[in-house]
Amino acid sequence: MHSDNHYYDKEITRQVISVVVLNENNALSRIVGLFSARGYNIDSLTVAPVEGSDYSRMTIVTTGDKRVISQIVKQLNKLIPILKVNEHKDVIEKDTVLMKFSIDNNLADIDVIAKTYHGSIQDVTDDAIIVSATDSAARIANFISVMQKYKPLEIVRSGIVAIER
């Protein structure tokens, strides 16, 4: 094909997409089903109701080349209960992690590291502490990797929420 006007480069990029969708029983399965049926990636997916409306907002992080990303956006728009699909360009995004450690660790060290990632100790029991941190996805990944030396007992991540600047 001629491609003077525009062309799709094959570079794989990461894309944050937010979807405003009617609250109905099947909305989530429609969206997840679309991704699996067409072989698209979901790296992260979060969903919560939009205040004072019949809609929910989903934030999906996906990867693909430009053709794939453009198809994902169009295919999502085609689903009947979807009101709006935003292909974000300039976003603030946040990811939260909850990590559980044995109480035998150096708690002061953990607290200091957590603070560098906008986190803190959330809960202490007789044998464990729970730390949470909220930051960009890349920094949270970094935080998790740094904390490996304290041998986390459990790690739970929220997935990404994002808002356009």
Partner: peptide, 26 residues
Amino acid sequence: QFAKKAKVIHIDIDPTSIDKLVDTNY
């Protein structure tokens, strides 16, 4: 190799059909 020498005008009611398989000029 399909319509290799051609520019493409693609008219469709379904936006997902456009640019799904080939790059469209119009």
